Amino acid sequence: MKVSVDPDVCDARGQCAVVDSELFTLAEEGFSDIGEGKPVPPGKEDVAEQGVEICPVQALSIDE
C-alpha cells in the first residue's frame, strides 16, 4: 500500500498529520510533503486510510 498527495489540492490544513505525524509529514509551511507513492509501513494501513479519509479537500489517495 502507498499513499500520495496532490500538491495542487492540498491547502495545509494538516488534519492528516493529526492522525499520524510520522506517516503524514508536513513541510514547514504546513503542506503535506509525502509526495507520490510513499510506502505505508506494515501495520499502519488503517492509519493511512484514516488520514486519507479525514482530509477535508481530498488531497490524499491510497494505491494498493
Rank of each mutant, 00 (worst) to 15 (best):
C10F: 02
C16L: 07
V9C: 08
D11G: 00
S32L: 09
V40T: 06
K44Y: 10
C55A: 10
A59R: 04
A27W: 00
Q58A: 14
V52I: 12
F24P: 03
V47H: 04
D8L: 11
P42A: 14
S61C: 04
A59E: 00
D46R: 06
F31E: 14
P41M: 08
E29D: 15
E64G: 13
S61N: 07
G43F: 10
V52Y: 03
I62Q: 06
A59I: 02
S21G: 12
A17K: 00
E53P: 05
G35L: 10
G14K: 00
I62E: 01
Q50T: 13
A27V: 00
E49A: 15
F24R: 00
E22K: 09
G43V: 06
S32H: 07
E28Y: 04
V19P: 12
D33H: 04
A48D: 14
G35R: 13
V3H: 08
V57H: 09
P7E: 11
V5P: 03
G35V: 13
V18Y: 07
V18A: 13
K44G: 08
C55L: 10
D8W: 03
A12N: 04
P56K: 07
I54A: 12
V57T: 14
S32F: 02
D63E: 14
P56L: 09
E64Q: 11
A27L: 02
L26N: 00
S32N: 10
F24N: 02
E49Y: 02
E36D: 12
C10V: 02
L60A: 03
G37C: 10
V57A: 05
V57S: 11
S21R: 01
E64D: 13
P7V: 05
E45H: 11
C55Q: 05
F31H: 14
V5N: 06
V52Q: 04
E28V: 01
S32I: 05
E49C: 01
